[in-house]
């Protein structure tokens, strides 16, 4: 099982798929950091994430913090149940949630 970050369009939409775990942590760190340079406003859909562990959670925390430091608006959306379980267990909804359980479209301005 691989883990990939795929660019959807030129306006900063990405999709993360596969297992966001320690096995791909090194690659994913670089991939995630590289997207910050692409746009002022980034949206990452987690809809393809099948598995996530502590290393994966750390990566999301890292990218959130890095985005904040660089003044990039980063939004995570479409949390799958694998992601939600981790976010709920660690009670990180405030940080990684980005309205996690509220259906995306309603509050979603820049959706393609």
């Amino acid at each position: 099982m691989e883990c990939r970050l795929i660019q959807q369009d030129r306006r900063g939409s990405f999709v993360l798929e596969g297992e966001l775990t320690i096995h791909h942590a090194l690659d994913m760190k670089q991939a995630l950091l590289s997207v910050l340079a692409q746009s002022e406003s980034i949206e990452i859909s987690l809809a393809g994430v099948t598995e996530m562990d502590t290393a994966g959670a750390q990566l999301l925390l890292m990218i959130k913090r890095a985005a904040e430091e660089q003044g990039v608006a980063l939004r995570l959306k479409d949390h799958t149940s694998a992601v939600r379980t981790v976010v709920e267990t660690m009670q990180l909804a405030g940080t990684l949630g980005d309205p996690m359980l509220i259906p995306g479209e309603a509050a979603d301005g820049d959706h393609p």
Binding site: I22, A25, L26, M28, K29, L33, T54, A55, A57, Q58, L59, L61, M62, I63, R65, A66, E69, M90, Q91, L92, T95
Partner: peptide, 20 residues
């Protein structure tokens, strides 16, 4: 309560290490 204080800046972070 997940304590993330030990998480280093992105460039220094080793993603295979545990900081939490």
């Amino acid at each position: 309560y997940t304590v993330t204080d030990a998480l280093p800046p992105a460039e220094e972070m080793d993603p295979e290490s545990c900081y939490l």
